[in-house]
Structure formats: structure tokens, C-alpha cells
């Protein structure tokens, strides 16, 4: 991975009142990579996403995307720059249909004005037809063909997860941020979701920054892993490098390094098992 970095966070900090959710985080995401952020609950993972997409403005620090500084932009400008995300608790537009969710995702790439729609100009009709065709393709890709006219709230859980990813893809991002896409799934569903994410990268040729709570899930497919704890980076590297790091084991088990060896062995086997699972 000698490619140039796509995203660069420098000394990113975010405080909520007195609590520092994120402290001086440096993060570099290489172009084309699947880069995972792992860490226990409350480590500040989601806050990293919020600070990148500018849903929250960082207290201090910089965010660079390609060669532009994006902190301080509004979220819609960040989306236009090429970053799109999903949410830990699915946030679809529940009261419109699945395909309409995708069409909203295409908002940036449908070029029509409201008066064109009122007058029914040929240009507007062409744009609508094109968007519609693209939405159908996307619907097929996320395995929801035939389910597009259902209200988003009526879809099954896994379908909602995929639709949310599809909606993010509809903005044609260069960087896709996925916040715990396997939350609430059993091991079988989880491995399918991971296969799906790899398919997304291959098909759309994009970079993926992935948050995961269970670290074993991402070990098999990540190019690089960043481990957060208490809002700070405690380890970073390739999966094998991170797996062996004592600080990581400690953070995950919540024990001091003087912990009984049995617990360490358990943690190590947990990580090792994940590696062999691929």
C-alpha cells in the first residue's frame, strides 16, 4: 500500500463538555484500502466518523480529504467532495420506499431544477429516467430487487443494513464510512455482510473505512487496523501486528498487564481464531 493517502486526520480532538471523546488522533487512510477502526464501546469510534463528515465539528485538529481541507465544511459539501457514510443505528428514511431512499442518495447527481419538474421539461424527464435506471441497478446490487417499492421501515433488518449501504453508494463516494455494519447480526449473517463489503470495494473501486466492535470480524479482510481506546489511538498496523499487541489485549479485556495468563491466552486465542476463520 504505497498509494497516496486519501484521508488524513491530524491531531483530531473532540470534547463534549468536560469529556474528551477523542484526543489528538492522527489517522491516515490509504487509497483503495479497507481500513478498520476497532475498540471497545465508548472508545470514540463513531465520534471519528462524525468529525470526518462534519456532523460534529472537531474541537481542534484538521481533516484533509484528497488535497482539500474539509473540516469546517457543511455535511452536504463533504458528501459532494466524495465521502458518504452509514450509521451504527440504521438511519434510513423510514417513511419512503427503498428505491426512493436510493434516489435521495442520488440527489447530488440528478441535475434538474424544481421548475423543470413542474413544467415537465424533456431534460428533467431524461434525468429522472437515468436516475431511475441507476437506482434499479443499485437495488439489484444490494440484493433488494423486487423489494424496492416497500417502505424502508417494512424491510427486514439485514435488508435495511444493505439499503443503507446502497444509499451511501448512490452518492458515488470515493470514501465509504461504515459504522458497525454487522451490529446485531449472528455469525453467519456477519460473514455474509463482510463478503458483501468486499464485493462493494471490488465493484465500486472505492476506499472503505470500517468501524467494528468485535475485532475478530475484521481481521481477515482489513488492510490496516487502528485500535482506539478512551479516545486515543493505542495501536495501528496490519492485522497480525495489532493482534499481538499487548495494549490491545489489555484494552479488550479491561485487565492490567499483570492479568492472569489464562485471560491473555483466551484473548490471544480469540484473535488467532479470527485470523484462521478467513
Amino acid at each position: 500500500m504505497a498509494e497516496a493517502s486519501l484521508l488524513l486526520c491530524r491531531r483530531l480532538t473532540r470534547r463534549f463538555g468536560g469529556i474528551a471523546a477523542l484526543t489528538d488522533l492522527d489517522l491516515e487512510v490509504a487509497s483503495g484500502a479497507i481500513h478498520s477502526i476497532i475498540g471497545p464501546n465508548g472508545a470514540g469510534k463513531t465520534t471519528v466518523f462524525n468529525c470526518i463528515t462534519q456532523n460534529l465539528s472537531p474541537t481542534s485538529g484538521e481533516v484533509w480529504f484528497r488535497s482539500d481541507r474539509i473540516d469546517g465544511l457543511t455535511p452536504d459539501r463533504v458528501a459532494a467532495a466524495g465521502i458518504s457514510r452509514t450509521y451504527q443505528n440504521i438511519r434510513l428514511f423510514r417513511n419512503i420506499t427503498a428505491i426512493e431512499n436510493l434516489l435521495v442518495g442520488m440527489h447530488l447527481h440528478v441535475h434538474s431544477h424544481w421548475w423543470g419538474a413542474v413544467l415537465g421539461t424533456p431534460h428533467t424527464k431524461r434525468e429522472e429516467a437515468r436516475a431511475h435506471a441507476e437506482a434499479l441497478k443499485l437495488l439489484h446490487f444490494i440484493d433488494l430487487a423486487g423489494r424496492g417499492d416497500l417502505l424502508a421501515r417494512n424491510l427486514a433488518y439485514g435488508e435495511q443494513r444493505r439499503l443503507e449501504i446502497g444509499r451511501a453508494l448512490a452518492t458515488r463516494p470515493k470514501l465509504l464510512l461504515l459504522d458497525e455494519p454487522t451490529a446485531g447480526m449472528n455469525p453467519h449473517e456477519t460473514s455474509r455482510m463482510m463478503a458483501f463489503i468486499q464485493r462493494v470495494r471490488a465493484e465500486f473501486d472505492i476506499t472503505i473505512l470500517l468501524i467494528e466492535h468485535q475485532m475478530r470480524v475484521v481481521m481477515g479482510m482489513s488492510d490496516r487496523v487502528t485500535v482506539l481506546d478512551h479516545g486515543a489511538k493505542i495501536a495501528e498496523g496490519t492485522p497480525p501486528e495489532v493482534q499481538g499487541d499487548p495494549a490491545v489485549i489489555e484494552a479488550y479485556l479491561g485487565v492490567k498487564s499483570a492479568a492472569p495468563t489464562a485471560a491473555r491466552d483466551h484473548a490471544a486465542s480469540l484473535l488467532g481464531a479470527a485470523a484462521s476463520e478467513r
Binding site: D76, R91, F93, N95, H107, A117, T171
Partner: peptide, 23 residues
């Protein structure tokens, strides 16, 4: 039934998400 109408409906359901999608 237009791009604007869909953006409005998105806004109604979740303003933050709509904005994050470029609205």
C-alpha cells in the same frame, strides 16, 4: 415526484442524514 420533493421527504424523516447525503 421530483428531486426536490424527495429531498423534502428526506428532510422530514431525518434532517441530518439528508444533509449528509448532499441535500
Amino acid at each position: 415526484n421530483s428531486r426536490l420533493g424527495r429531498a423534502w421527504e428526506a428532510l422530514r424523516d431525518d434532517e441530518d442524514v439528508a444533509q449528509a447525503l448532499g441535500v
